[in-house]
Design a protein around this nucleic acid. Sequence first.
DNA 1: TAACAAGCGTTATAATATAACAATTATGTA
DNA 2: TACATAATTGTTATATTATAACGCTTGTTA
Lengths: 132, 132
Amino acid sequence: MKHKQVNLSKNQHIVLETIRKAKKPLKAYSILSSVKKKGINAPPQVYRALEKLVELGAIHKIESKNAFVDCKNSECETSKATAFSICKKCQKITEIMNSKLSTYLTNFQDNTGMKYEKYNLEFYGLCKRCKL
Amino acid sequence: MKHKQVNLSKNQHIVLETIRKAKKPLKAYSILSSVKKKGINAPPQVYRALEKLVELGAIHKIESKNAFVDCKNSECETSKATAFSICKKCQKITEIMNSKLSTYLTNFQDNTGMKYEKYNLEFYGLCKRCKL
DNA sequence: TAACAAGCGTTATAATATAACAATTATGTA
DNA sequence: TACATAATTGTTATATTATAACGCTTGTTA
């Protein structure tokens, strides 16, 4: 699985590596406290890096959690089509990579005449382990 | 079929009516300033009402905007399956009511063994008018 | 009518995010 | 090279969104 980090700036690189090492989605201020030892001191530095990384498709924002995960999908050049499953109990979040789903949603048209360029889908439920 | 607002408390009723009258999704603090004249003075009063109304399915939260809209879908007893289109330019937000879509997503299963109970889907793009 | 759940009002504060500005670094191109 | 310019950085301050905690009141129901 290929990772994208070639043209990243110093702060972008630090933030991305922090997110990649995490096993859970990270919140901005949690990232901030992790990277203070690397010389990143203030929120705007983190938020700017996050914004850029989202643009690049290197990470995704879980909107309902205000948290960030790295993109595991090598086909994901930009964050135009994202889907996640979120366990309500253990909070485990998994990116859903299902070509039928993404094809279905990418081609979806409602009756308002709107041209969709991007979507984000968040499923909630109980994961395999928490169901027991 | 019971009307959704019959059993609402005073604050819940005020907040719901404010959202219903609005033509756009409202943010919590915008609601707060609208309802000060009706005796609601502090954020927790608004947030409590919003939480309950979301639970009841009377309103939905647009996660990527931190804003609330009333549910236009009479079948929507609780907010278990929601989809919206969001215009990137004019910010117009429309609830998508499409039974094929909701059936497809409600029955969707990925390969992680997770049981989905709820989803929220947000499409972004340009609405008919802004496309021109 | 006692007991309990739900709701209320209030103060304070936590958590999330951005504005604004000056300085620095990277990149393209004449 | 040298200049323009776009991107990035560091910093302070502040805006925005959301919740904790506490005691009181109201509504429900056994």
